[in-house]
């Protein structure tokens, strides 16, 4: 399979298999006006398989969103056909408007104009809790 190299944009590498589609959706890449390549199950020496995302434009991307889904990825920034930066990510301490609280009793379910905020409360177990009601974020059920 041949995918064109990109002149300017991002190559998000070392994505755990299955996570590229989640990053694609969370970054809302279906609504940007440039080429995007989503490649799954690419052969990898380290992990046998991995996913890859190529974005053909230097758009503003929210690294916290990517790190939330998969903190082990590498974000390569490409300018004039050259990788000018290899960015490693860290699990964000705070998620703002990345996920919605799915507790129906949470104030965020009714209050308008309220940021959806989650705090990292356990780094080792990667547990986030709603800033308001402290409900644990179920990563596979996020709504954005």
């Amino acid at each position: 399979m041949n995918i064109d190299t990109i002149e300017n944009g991002y190559v998000i590498d070392h994505i755990t298999s299955g996570n590229a589609i989640k990053i694609y959706r969370l970054l809302d890449l279906e609504n940007i006006e440039c080429q995007v390549a989503l490649i799954t199950n690419v052969k990898s020496k380290k992990t046998k398989t991995k996913d890859l995302l190529k974005i053909g434009k230097l758009i503003d991307i929210d690294l916290d969103k990517i790190a939330f889904i998969d903190p082990d990825v590498t974000v390569n920034v490409v300018k004039n056909n050259k990788i000018i930066k290899k960015q490693k990510l860290q699990l964000p301490e705070k998620l703002i408007n990345v996920c919605k609280c799915n507790n129906p009793r949470c104030i965020t379910s009714i209050e308008r104009n309220l940021d959806q905020v989650f705090n990292l409360t356990d780094k080792d177990k990667k547990i986030y809790r709603c800033h308001y009601c402290e409900t644990t974020l179920e990563k596979d059920k996020f709504l954005y």
């Binding site: 949470c106 104030i107 709603c130 308001y132 402290e134």
Partner: peptide, 10 residues
């Protein structure tokens, strides 16, 4: 007092 959890934070 509020029925919604986290309301006092708001």
């Amino acid at each position: 007092r509020h029925p919604k959890e986290g309301a006092p934070v708001v």
